[in-house]
Amino acid sequence: MAATVETSGIAPVGRRALRAFLRNPTAIVGSLFLAFVAMLSLMAPWLYPEDPLSMVARPFLWPGQNPAFPLGTDSLGRDVTAGLVWGGRISLAVGLAATCLGVSFGIVVGSTAGYFGGRIDNLLVRLIEIFQTLPSFLLLVVLVAIAQPTIETVTFAIAIVTWPTVARLVRAEFRTLRERDFVTAARALGFGHIRIVMLEILPNALPPIIVTASVLVATAILMESALSFLGLSDPNLVSWGSMIGSSRELLRSAWYLSAIPGIAIVCTVLSINLIGDALNDALNPRSPGIE
């Protein structure tokens, strides 16, 4: 076999990062828990085919009191387990969809600003700053209050308040990457702007974007829960936040009704943050302990 020369520098992201990721115990714990939640959510229609909002038993059954309802029932006799499983669907769907939307828009704006610079950059940075100076949760509440509180508008509103973070990050990455020699070399080959952005710069900017996206999923889940807690989310759907919201007056008598969905939110957000941390380590070529 021909001897290869291993020099310092950025290795291709793919395989090496995956190996580093799988060697990290927190990454394994996070991924396993998230996979468990995702599986339960996906299987909700088969596990609990009935509407989770329908009254199925005597109200205020405590967890373990009736084996048919392992996590008990709420003040209206609705199955908490069914609500938890169906609520997970909403939380994950909103988290993922809002992040995808926000990240895509952030990449478009950030790459345009960072790559072209000059007047376009100035204009787009002002736009980003307008959004960043507004308190994001307040903006979210206002947006949802103006529009009808459906799952789509909630998702869209969360995307609107999260894209500036991504745009700023992408812009900074593009500004440094566009000065690199291989970008000049690509220009010397007669490549157009789109080819240079898509082939040369974006793949090199992906690691920090992926890490940020993983954290944004957690943030989006929290935002959706907070909106539901305030009763500003879709009233026809169960979500973890709305479960806590509807049982907050019973905190002293039936605390389990708030605690169970609360634990679900904490564990899911924590596992996503663990994954984000591990991705950060795995994708950062300068982090210690990797080759």
């Binding site: 520098g9 291989f182 070399a185 080959l189």
Partner: peptide, 30 residues
């Protein structure tokens, strides 16, 4: 014209290749 009729070789081979693309794709892309 660039890259087709007039091409350029740069000074620093360590940085003038895209680190996340195989050399075959980089040659193929032009």
């Amino acid at each position: 014209i660039r890259g087709r009729q007039v091409a350029m070789v740069f000074q620093e081979p360590m940085t003038s290749l895209n680190p996340v693309m195989t050399v075959g794709r980089q040659i193929g892309e032009v």
